[in-house]
Design a protein around this nucleic acid. Structure first.
Ligand SMILES: [Mn+2]
Ligand SMILES: [Mn+2]
Ligand SMILES: [Zn+2]
Ligand SMILES: [Zn+2]
Lengths: 146, 146
DNA sequence: CGGCAATATGCAACCGAATTGCATGAATGT
DNA sequence: ACATTCATGCAATTCGGTTGCATATTGCCG
């Protein structure tokens, strides 16, 4: 999906050693057209050389902390992971289907969000803005109608 | 906090019997200046006549389903509950402090969000839009600096 | 009122996603 | 080679929240 990203380079740029597990996780997330759960990432990894579930969680934590990945709230109690905004990936909103729990990335232009005023006046430190739309996805809508 | 809301009336209007437990939950949520966790609601209830934890969860589920309350994703794995948008409560964004896990309601005008285009063109059904800002709250910022 | 169905509540057990503790394995530096 | 640091695996645990099922309360009809 993303042929712009040199994951090894991205890791280096964030001051992280780039081992094969980290690169694998970055690739899987970067290649996905929608944000992935830790479970989905782990399952994908298991199709080649498997990494322990806990290690995957720890790698995800690390990559989020270093700002390479975004941890995204789904409408349920789980998290999804996607590329953090960078030169090649603009910040964008997501859609969550409460029927099938699938998430979709929406285009950066799909909604207009202006936080400039708040950023200037809010007394705390704003680090991230998350916009999530909830509802029923196209697929589930069709199934429900018949 | 909200002297506009007749909770008994709101329940009735949504086709729900209004018993004391439901009214109690509505009051607690409606009187709060920030969205509350089920735990916080339960703790508040326990200061008077206590209701079983599970019953609180079930009442919350019901009120969310009927559109009286909003279930809001915090930045962690828990939910918060606030009044759903209605005649007296405009839809508004929230702030989540990753340090102390506190949430704040932001004013409806604080950010400008335009989803009109998406609402027209999105192939699924959009039922809800959530805007959450994450960071460090004013309080925690001060503590960190000294 | 009595009888009975429908709802609401309580309690214990359970669940899934994520986290922790601790032992072991790899990598790095001297 | 050896010590130090960092990465990984495995088992056990935590945390919000949910389910199953028994009991209580309510609403409704005669
Ligand atoms: Mn995305
Ligand atoms: Mn609010
Ligand atoms: Zn769906
Ligand atoms: Zn805080």
């Amino acid at each position: 999906m993303c042929r712009h990203c040199d994951y090894k380079e991205l890791l280096k740029a964030s001051g992280l050693e780039s081992n094969s597990n980290r690169i694998r996780v970055m690739e899987i997330v970067g290649n996905s057209s929608y944000p992935l759960s830790a479970q989905e990432i782990s399952d994908t990894i298991d199709r080649t050389a498997s990494i322990n579930r806990v290690t995957v969680y720890r790698i995800l934590d690390l990559l989020v902390e270093k700002g390479l990945l975004d941890r995204i709230s789904a409408g349920d109690r789980s998290f999804r992971y996607g590329m953090a905004p960078n030169a090649h990936h603009r910040h964008h909103p997501h859609f969550y289907c409460r029927q099938c729990s699938a998430m979709e990335c929406l285009s950066p232009e799909s909604v207009h969000l202006d936080t400039a005023f708040l950023e200037r006046t809010f007394p705390g430190a704003i680090e991230k803005v998350e916009v999530r739309l909830d509802g029923i996805c196209k697929n589930c809508l069709q199934k429900l109608l018949k």
